[in-house]
C-alpha cells in the first residue's frame, strides 16, 4: 500500500498543484491572481516532467568518467526551454494587465466587463442621429 502510494505520490501532488492553479485561473476574477495561478500550473507541469525522468539511485546527468546511472536528461532540456518561454508569457500577460488597468482603471474581470458594456451602449447611442 505504502509502495503504491510512494510510486504515484509525485504525480498525485502534481495533479493537486495543477488543479489548484487551474482553479485560480478559472474562478478568481483578479487578473494578477490569474497570472499567479498560471505560474502555479506551469511549475506543476515542470515537476511532472522532471519526476518522469527521475531514476531511483541515479545522479544528475553530468559525465564524471565513472560508470553511473543518470536521470533522463531530455525532460530537463525541455523544461529549461519551458521555464524561459514561461517567463516570456508571464511578462506579456502582466504588460496586458498594466494596459487594461490604464484603460479601465480596474483589474477585476467583472468590473472590466461592466465598463465594456457601458462603452458599447455609449458607442451605440453616439451612432444614432
Amino acid at each position: 500500500m505504502l509502495e503504491l502510494f510512494l510510486a504515484k505520490y509525485n504525480y498525485w501532488i502534481v495533479i493537486l498543484l495543477m488543479m489548484t492553479g487551474l482553479y485560480i485561473v478559472v474562478a478568481r476574477g483578479n487578473l494578477v491572481k490569474k497570472i499567479i495561478g498560471l505560474n502555479v500550473f506551469q511549475t506543476s507541469v515542470f515537476i511532472l516532467y522532471i519526476s518522469m525522468g527521475k531514476v531511483a539511485g541515479g545522479t544528475a546527468p553530468i559525465l564524471t568518467g565513472r560508470d553511473e546511472i543518470f536521470s533522463n536528461p531530455i525532460p530537463h532540456v525541455l523544461i529549461l526551454t519551458a521555464i524561459v518561454v514561461g517567463i516570456a508569457t508571464t511578462a506579456l500577460g502582466l504588460a496586458f494587465v498594466v494596459r487594461i488597468r490604464e484603460a479601465y482603471d480596474s483589474i477585476e474581470d467583472d468590473e472590466i466587463d461592466d465598463a465594456e458594456k457601458q462603452d458599447m451602449a455609449r458607442d451605440l447611442e453616439g451612432r444614432l442621429p
Partner: peptide, 27 residues
C-alpha cells in the same frame, strides 16, 4: 532532489527571481 540541477538554478533565477520582480512591478 530530482537530479535536475540545470533546471533548478534556472527556476530559482527566473521563477523565484525575475517573475517575482515583474509581479511586484505590476502591483
Amino acid at each position: 532532489n530530482l537530479d535536475a540541477v540545470d533546471v533548478a538554478f534556472t527556476e530559482a533565477a527566473v521563477g523565484a527571481g525575475i517573475s517575482t520582480v515583474l509581479m511586484l512591478g505590476t502591483l
